[in-house]
Design a protein around this nucleic acid. Sequence first.
DNA 1: GAAGAAACTTGGACTCAGTGCAAGGTTGAC
DNA 2: GTCAACCTTGCACTGAGTCCAAGTTTCTTC
Lengths: 198, 198
Amino acid sequence: MSGEDELGLRERKKLQTWRTIRAAALRLFNERGFEAVSVDDVAAAANVSRSTLFNYFSSKEALVFDPDPQETQAWRELMRDRPADEPLWTSLQEILIGYLSLMADRMAIQKRLKATSPTLAQSAHDSADRFNAELSDWVAARTPEARRVRATLLVNSARAVLVTAYAAWSPDEGFDRFLRLVRDCFAQAGRGFAADQS
Amino acid sequence: MSGEDELGLRERKKLQTWRTIRAAALRLFNERGFEAVSVDDVAAAANVSRSTLFNYFSSKEALVFDPDPQETQAWRELMRDRPADEPLWTSLQEILIGYLSLMADRMAIQKRLKATSPTLAQSAHDSADRFNAELSDWVAARTPEARRVRATLLVNSARAVLVTAYAAWSPDEGFDRFLRLVRDCFAQAGRGFAADQS
DNA sequence: GAAGAAACTTGGACTCAGTGCAAGGTTGAC
DNA sequence: GTCAACCTTGCACTGAGTCCAAGTTTCTTC
């Protein structure tokens, strides 16, 4: 999340515009609910035209879920930082925890918004998918062809862990509690499910 | 999937209309692609008004993914049929395989369509969610409060298994191959991931 | 089997998301 | 300072989804 200084004026303006729009969107959605606010409302509140808004965000839902432009860079660093000989399951855990920490401040709002709009709830997947794609690439690059399906299974299972912890967490409980849930579920999935007696 | 005979005329007509619309939709989408066909096209092809179409399907995507009205009944039977003392992980495997078998004929078309339209790919989750909700209810009813989070983890992991197998499968390969992938991934997740050396 | 209630269908008008384009304004490079 | 690349804007257009009032079909009851 460093270095927005050595950017040209043009780039800095873009970043600023992006953040202005996002901020306006989150504020309005939070006040009135997702459905009750139109894209034009958001554009107006951010002092940009409708067209410009759609230059930055590909859909109304993207206003809520798109990652900050500098965040995707941070993702890659999270992955690059894992030692090559670390077991994949451990790497996934640490990467995902890092990922969540980047969104820590947004998470509560997002979860609350999702509760109020079915449309949003649905397209939340999508945002997770983008990170997942990034993650899958990273995994694929470090896994030989023959173990590719297994590697995918691990990635998807890690996501299952996340989803489970997320569902069990309430936005009022604070972020630490959420991380504890994540670690716990990771441990359980690590041990496997076959041994359960019911 | 039995008993559409002891239905009244009204009910039988409804079922028939539903299936006519669905069939028309799948045919058109398959011929021209999802995006290239409008809802009006489908309505026209099914000899039904736009309004009626939306009475039966809540969205364009639903035309592809909604389960046949009689299918949801079959789901419940799948769940009811599992012995109460069977380990949950095993039950999940068998239920999901049964579920997939119900959709066996649609699956190849759906996967092909999904490949051609981003919108569709996204909302595929949604359809799976509906089954998942049903499944979660069943699991919750058979699991004491204290183990609820773990049960959710198992359900979500089972879904991860499915998603993995689905991704690794190609629609040309035939359904049996798909089932083999599912069983294999179930076994792997059953054994856990912690032991992996990388 | 006639009459009325309930459920289903229809067309049309409306809102809003998202696309495409052409014109005007801003930024950066030489 | 000039030119090219890039951003922003307004406007017109398509298509999804909602709402409603009026017409038609099925079910019920006597």
